[in-house]
Design a protein around this nucleic acid. Sequence first.
RNA 1: GCGCCCGUAGCUCAGCUGGAUAGAGCGUCGGACUUCGAAUCCGCAGGUCGCAGGUUCGAAUCCUGCCGGGCGCGCCA
Length: 607
Amino acid sequence: MRSGYMATDFFAMLTEDLARPIRDRLSQLDIDAEVSLAPPTRAGSGDLSFACHSLARFFRKAPQVIAEELATCFDSEPRVTQVETVSGFLNLYLDWTHVAPQILEWSRTDDGALGLSQTLKGRRILVEYSSPNTNKPLHLGHCRNIILGSTVARILKAAGGDVVRVNLVNDRGIHICKSMVAYQNFGHGATPDSSGLKSDHFIGHYYVLFDKAMNEEYLAYSQGLAEPMNKDDYFNSELSSLGSQTRKMLVDWEAGIPDVRELWSTMNAWCEAGFEETYQRMGVGFERVYHESQTYLLGKDLVAEGLDGGIFKYAANGAVVFDLETIGLNGEKAVLRADGTSVYVTQDIGTAVKRFEEYEFDQMVYVTGNEQDHHFRVLFGILESLKPNYAGKLKHLSYGMVELPDGKMKSREGTVVDADDLMDELQKAAADAGRSRWPHLTEEQLFTRAEAIAQGGLKYFLLKYAPVTTFVFDRERSISLEGETGAYCQYAYARATSMLRKLDNADVGVEPDYGVLSHEQAQAVLKAMLAFPTDVRTAALELKPSVLTKSTFELAKSFAAFYNHKDCRVIGAEPAAMAARAQLVRCARRMLGAGLELLGMVALEEM
RNA sequence: GCGCCCGUAGCUCAGCUGGAUAGAGCGUCGGACUUCGAAUCCGCAGGUCGCAGGUUCGAAUCCUGCCGGGCGCGCCA
């Protein structure tokens, strides 16, 4: 499918070509202005358009007059069939009979039509996503993170980047010790196997148990007290048995007490094995997985170095802090506690430096929720002070929360949507919806197909919103075929495949009449095809997969309108017309497949 | 209190490095199955782009001030 030779953007070349005579004309007049042709925003204004208003100050003439003068640039241009000028706009009408076969040839043979380009060639880009805590299973919020990150990675790679997908497992700290303490107290030697639970759910069970036991303990303590301390203070006091056990666990862990380390590694391995199952189901992976337990010490070393270099200083109580005023923020940020233990940002410092040493990245993209915007401003400020050569290379891809129809997800209130459960549910719903439609499938085949629809729907739904947007997740909509959904795009691909299957190469060897592709519906498909490579590049440069979902949908939508139109039939049409349309179907299908692939979706041959 | 993000059609969202009559999906209503698969398709209706100023030939887009919502501002992660 991929020749690996060329990766050109036909549309970019076309607009470049057509803009050239205008540029030449302007440079003859010694005018230095930007000229770019773009599809008009107003319908019925041609195929490409150029606004002459900004040239008025150079010409000292009205935009309309300028447009009329520039119109003559295209007198001998075969690709342009008509030029019109409307209130200062220069509108070009393409000769589709002439251009269509060129587009088809390009889209059939050129990797650029698949969205590949050399835009980021030579740039090593690390993308960090998922970044789970090993104390509970993944939820819907992680899904957005994982799907955003893995898709951004794929898009950056398509744009020519040398991409390394990395994960950072938060595998140490007080929250991890809570699950461990609960397991020690209530586990009775159970294992994921003995319990029949998926191994990360098994761990999550103990995290929940801890919380429950802690609440009971706190309730018993506070009963009858006039002024009980708050729960946090209680946890950190000697009065709390579970609190004391947990804090001791953390100290013992840092001290490397063998029993504690063993329990820790056993439980973490269970949790990570569970995550791995989920990653595989989602079709995502990593080239390199970092563990906080292995980088936080490096972070502490770097703090020591920075202290010597005057980047950090001691606070009155002995903590090591960074002055945020130096990066335009207020206050101070502790990078080491007074007792010398590390904080959240410490390990991020260590991890970043380790990564740079390993990969010498040109860019490091962190995918996390927008509640960490401040954290990353601080982290980047610290890193750039510590390592000036990192400046401009650190990027935070921040995304908004995922909400539910009945409000926000809150772990305290048990309204968190578990990732595995959700995927099961979507798969089952897709299977139920398709069961009567595909009576010839076995139940196993049905669920395989349903999985492709469920995963595709989930991914599309989580990607179609701009990262910054907070949105409401709608289960039913996510696997629907109506409207802008993943399944809609998959369906268009399946229909194209079905048509070609039925056509059975009947068009081979027939001289095509490309004139039929100037039909409105065919033109729309060709235009969607022209836009695709640019959209992939935009999605890469702006880290916005939503640009790609939109582009893929436009492809699917225009194609659906095309094959539904009575005047655009392929099979049964005049041979010459059939041959031209068949080519369009093949090319659109190829590009649609590329879009789905970039989105991490399965392109079904039938659905 | 300070910082960041958001406010566009009944709903969910694009558009925001300034350009023509502000778009899409859902929903509502009305159509299209004797022809490539009607889960697809076509059409109608629907908006003072939060409010008020300013810059500009031109503002949803840039600037300022308000109003409304979200997230942060830990020696938590």
